[in-house]
């Protein structure tokens, strides 16, 4: 079964444990500035929203890359950047409609979420289940469950 990251901003407290876990896995240090997942704090709205690559099927980044440095990991569905091939041209950062591919000036390569080979550290580190690792075909299941419960409550009230 292919799995997918599922993000529920309503549960996010903005603690950045996901960024800490991501940066350690990729950079070997606690360094949120180098995290592939970012939590956005819309502070005047009281909302925290984690955001990262959604691993598009027809990935703009992958198609735009002139040296074929971005490839599909068939097992996980992740689009993976090969550091050996990446020339740092940044065309993928322009092609991506969502901004989730970014350039790392320290290495001269681009960085993006690679789903940690199928066991994402961000989901494991999240203390509130705002980020979960679920069946790719059913990322909406928990939201459906919550609404289903409300529907049922309505039935019970009228019964």
């Amino acid at each position: 079964m292919q799995k997918s990251l599922s993000i529920d901003p309503g549960k996010c407290t903005g603690c950045l444990q996901c960024e800490l876990a991501c940066s350690y896995d990729n950079e070997g240090a606690f360094n949120p500035a180098k995290s592939r997942i970012k939590v956005f704090n819309f502070h005047e709205k009281g909302r925290f929203v984690p955001y990262t690559c959604t691993q598009c099927d027809e990935a703009w980044c992958m198609h735009a890359c002139p040296v074929d440095a971005i490839t599909l990991d068939k097992a996980t569905g992740a689009k993976i950047v090969s550091n050996a091939l990446c020339v740092g041209c940044k065309v993928c950062t322009i092609a991506c409609p969502f901004g989730t591919v970014n350039y790392n000036a320290d290495t001269g390569k681009v960085i993006k979420c690679d789903l940690c080979g199928g066991d994402p550290e961000c989901a494991k580190a999240c203390p509130t289940d705002a980020i979960t690792w679920v069946d790719a075909n059913w990322t909406g299941l928990e939201k459906m469950r919550a609404w289903a419960a409300k529907t049922d409550a309505g039935q019970q009230a009228s019964a």
Partner: peptide, 14 residues
Amino acid sequence: VRNAACFGCTIGCG
């Protein structure tokens, strides 16, 4: 509106 956490906090009392 909601609770909020400081950096790295798994309590979230804010």
